[in-house]
Design a protein around this nucleic acid. Structure first.
Length: 568
RNA sequence: CGGGGCGUGGCGCAGCCUGGUAGCGCACCUGCUUUGGGAGCAGGGGGUCGGAGGUUCAAAUCCUCUCGCCCCGACCA
């Protein structure tokens, strides 16, 4: 590609509304342009990267036995109503009407339509298992889109759905996908972890997220320093904390005035105690009524764990009005004593005695409270893990990392197949429900994550497998025939060898070309200038390491080829 | 949805408080000089100041409404 003919608008200055590095660099390197909140034009440079990622995904999915197809992006409401998600999915679902007033949505994910396809065309166990996927544009009307392609509203996603005869088969499909995903992100040249995850709105049980490790990641990842255990923060287990017998301080609970002291910090400072001697009481509300959740003052409640223990998916933090109604006090003074809702306590609380709690009245707390002073319906692991907690698998120590979720795999079971009556006949002629799994990869987000993980102050440093071009060829003197001819010859030869090369033959000063090459992050740079040509050499510089070598002009192509092969 | 902020040429910004008819840097075009890490000089093109309404002799500037965008929060008492 000749730079002078290409559509590649680079920016010197950082656009004001781009917050994170990958977004800034994608704008500066001419990959994307914003067109509305969370909606982007993808320019030629950006598309080249996207296509590279897509092709790696395709190759690995096909290798894993999945079949590509292409579904509509606009989906009829009826399918979503069948599974109840038309109502459940909420405002993120972009709903539209056609001229006849029929309801549709722009697909944010495609379980329903894949299940619909399969239920209509799969009759027999002989047709299973099946794994179908597409690479499609999705739309999720995010509350707050941000970070460019990282969290857009319109985005490209590879989504795959597996259909099996039984749970064993579905688990095998899941395992195969996990391996395919590992291969995909490895091939993209990324550092990542597969972590245990919550399945959220998609539903289902077994689930893992693939997280690209980057300091700017939106998600917290808990990782063991001793084994390969890794989990999303909301899933990280805390083990072995429950106490068999409860200690008792022998004291009676006693009121203490705490005017205006609401937070744990304020109360403990005011009373001169440590947060580990305070129990906070969190009021949550759901379809099955309100519950109180007790955790130690220095711990945080993990709502995912609470929902599981209480068996109420709908539990959310209660509104201040409800807190007032339930506890008789404003937010900040809830306590377990004489509280008329079921109480659940974190295991760590089982070791406590003589602690401080809220007093269920404004500006009042209680001291010297013991577990014998109130009834706990159940103890369990209800808190978020913290740095240094023991690993639930090996007893090592947990550390925290930041990650960007680029892939997510789920075992779904029969959630969709049952709702949509996706059945088959087994060998005995009995009707069975199909077991499903679903598997997503954010394509644009993977590209963005690659930049977050691979850049320096000058620009992007693409891993070779997803770089838009492999070689940037710079002709420093396109005006001087004897120099430029050398560059032209190298360009032709590289093209002949099948190398993807961006040939910078613009009438620009050398500095501009060097800086653009660094910004664009093309792995290898070949420089042809007056000086070098006089000595019969050109320079090859590697973007990632900064290593530079002068090589005879006639050997340039051969050496470049070797270097590429060593790095792909 | 709550709070904060911003919309002025392609990009980054000043001007607004204290109204007088738009400016700077980069980019772009022409010419000359320059040419190994974002060149210099000279000349030039481009903006109904997000939109609507109002106040005023006069509005980028003041007032009202509206649209768009960004940031923080929205699950820890």
């Amino acid at each position: 590609m000749r730079y002078s003919k290409y559509f590649l608008p680079t920016l010197r200055e950082v656009p004001a509304d781009a917050e994170v590095t990958s977004h800034q660099l994608m704008l500066r390197s001419g990959m994307v342009r914003r067109i509305a909140a969370g909606i982007y034009d993808i320019l030629p440079m950006g598309l080249r990267v996207i296509r590279k990622v897509e092709n790696i995904i395709r190759e690995e999915m096909n290798r894993a036995g999945a079949h590509e197809l292409f579904m509509p992006s606009i989906l009829p409401a009826e399918l979503w109503q069948e599974t109840g998600r038309w109502d459940f999915y909420g405002k993120e679902l972009l709903r539209i009407r056609d001229r006849h007033g029929r309801e549709f949505c722009y697909g944010p994910t495609h379980e329903e339509i894949f299940t619909d396809l399969v239920r209509r065309d799969i009759r027999s166990y002989r047709q299973l298992p099946q794994n179908l996927y597409q690479i499609q544009t999705k739309f999720r009307d995010e509350v707050r889109p941000r970070f460019g392609l990282m969290r857009g509203r319109e985005f490209s996603m590879k989504d795959a759905y597996s259909f099996d005869r039984d749970r064993t088969g579905a688990e095998e499909s899941y395992r195969v996908m996990r391996e395919a995903y590992t291969a995909i992100f490895k091939r993209c040249g990324l550092q990542f972890r597969a972590v245990e995850a919550d399945s959220g709105k998609i539903g289902g049980s077994l689930s893992q997220e693939f997280m690209v490790l980057a300091e700017t990641g939106e998600d917290s990842v808990v990782s063991c320093d001793g084994c390969d255990y890794a989990a999303n923060l909301e899933m990280a287990e805390v083990k072995g904390e429950v106490s068999g017998s409860f200690a008792d301080s022998g004291q009676d609970p006693e009121k203490v005035d705490t005017p205006g002291q609401k937070t744990v910090q304020e109360v403990t400072d005011f009373l001169g105690i440590s947060p580990i001697n305070l129990v906070k009481t969190i009021i949550m509300n759901g379809d099955k009524g309100a519950v109180g959740v007790l955790v130690r003052g220095d711990h945080e409640v993990n709502p995912v764990k609470v929902r599981r223990l209480v068996d109420d998916e709908t539990l959310e933090l209660a509104e201040p009005e409800l807190v007032q109604k339930v506890t008789g006090a404003p937010v900040g003074f809830a306590g377990p004593l004489e509280l008329d809702i079921p109480l659940y306590a974190d295991n760590a609380v089982s070791h406590m005695s003589g602690f401080v709690t809220g007093g269920n009245a404004a500006d009042v707390h209680m001291q010297g409270v013991d577990l014998s002073d109130f009834i706990v319906k159940a103890f369990g692991d209800l808190r978020e893990a913290v740095q240094g907690d023991p690993c639930p698998r090996c007893g090592g120590s947990l550390t925290f990392l930041r990650g960007i979720e680029v892939g997510h795999i789920f075992y779904l079971g029969t959630k969709y197949s049952e709702a949509m009556k996706a059945h088959y006949l087994d060998e005995s002629g009995a009707e069975q429900v199909i077991e499903m799994g679903c598997y997503g990869i954010g394509v644009g987000r993977t590209a963005a994550a690659a930049i977050e993980q691979n850049h320096d102050e000058k620009g992007i440093i693409w891993p070779v497998p997803i770089a838009p071009f492999t070689v940037a060829l710079l002709s420093l003197d396109p005006g001087k025939e004897e120099v430029h001819a050398v560059a032209e010859a190298i360009y032709d030869d590289l093209i002949q060898m099948g190398v993807e090369v961006l040939f910078d033959e613009r009438e620009e000063r050398p500095g501009v070309k060097f800086n653009d090459a660094d910004l664009l992050g093309i792995p290898l740079r070949v420089t042809v200038g007056g000086r070098g040509v006089k000595e019969g050499v050109a320079e090859i510089k590697e973007r990632a390491t900064g290593e530079e070598q002068k090589v005879p002009i006639e050997k340039v192509v051969e050496i470049v080829k070797e270097m590429i092969d060593a790095r792909s």
